[in-house]
Amino acid sequence: MNPNNLRYSKNHEWIGIPNEKNQAYVGITHFAQNELGDIVYLDVENSIIGKTIKVENSFGTIEAVKTVSDLFMPVSGCILKINNKLFSKPELINKSSYNEGWIIQIKILEFKEYDQLMSSKEYQNYIQGSN
């Protein structure tokens, strides 16, 4: 269920480095979107583009039918881009949390933080232990 090429945080964010050396995509995990339920709104301000946000600091919120949840940086990074499709179609996070549902693109500033994140198997064990 959780792709092996991604890393995972205890706050249920994922991070993936496609081809660029220090650029990565960040989103919430399938587990997190499932726990939240139907996502209806994403609140990530365009003003964060170009800003540096430290690991575990909030970069926005995500709203589901029943709750609002903060979004946390899995690593320290500079925000490069926001997935603008999500503003008109937040349900993409429910439908495709690891592909079309990515939330931000960042430039990683601390690779040691990335290396400390959980692998797919470690994250699976983590979420099974939290049930």
Rank of each mutant, 00 (worst) to 15 (best):
Q23Y: 13
N83S: 11
N2R: 00
G129E: 02
Y8W: 07
I82H: 01
E122Y: 03
G16L: 09
N131F: 00
N46R: 15
E122L: 04
L71A: 13
E110F: 01
K10S: 12
V40W: 03
S9A: 13
N34A: 11
M1S: 10
Y98K: 00
S96Q: 10
T61G: 13
K95C: 13
A32E: 07
F59S: 13
G27R: 02
L6G: 04
Q128H: 12
V44I: 13
A32R: 03
Y114F: 02
N83A: 15
E113D: 06
E63N: 07
N131D: 07
I104L: 12
Y25P: 02
I28P: 09
N83Y: 02
L86V: 02
Q128D: 08
K66Q: 11
N83F: 04
S96A: 15
I17M: 11
L36H: 04
T67H: 11
I17Y: 04
I93C: 04
A64N: 10
I108H: 08
V44M: 10
L42E: 07
V65R: 00
Y123E: 08
W14P: 00
K21H: 11
A32Q: 01
K85D: 14
N83I: 07
G16R: 12
P90N: 08
P3W: 04
N34T: 09
N2H: 06
I48Q: 03
A64W: 03
N84R: 13
I106L: 07
P74W: 00
S76Q: 10
D115C: 12
G77P: 00
K21A: 12
E100P: 04
K107F: 01
I15Y: 01
Q128G: 06
I15N: 06
I15C: 06
I15A: 01
Y126T: 01
K89S: 12
F59Y: 15
L86A: 13
G60S: 02
I106E: 08
Y126R: 00
A32F: 05
Q116E: 12
K112S: 10
L86T: 00
K107E: 05
I49P: 01
I104W: 07
A64S: 13
G101E: 08
N11F: 14
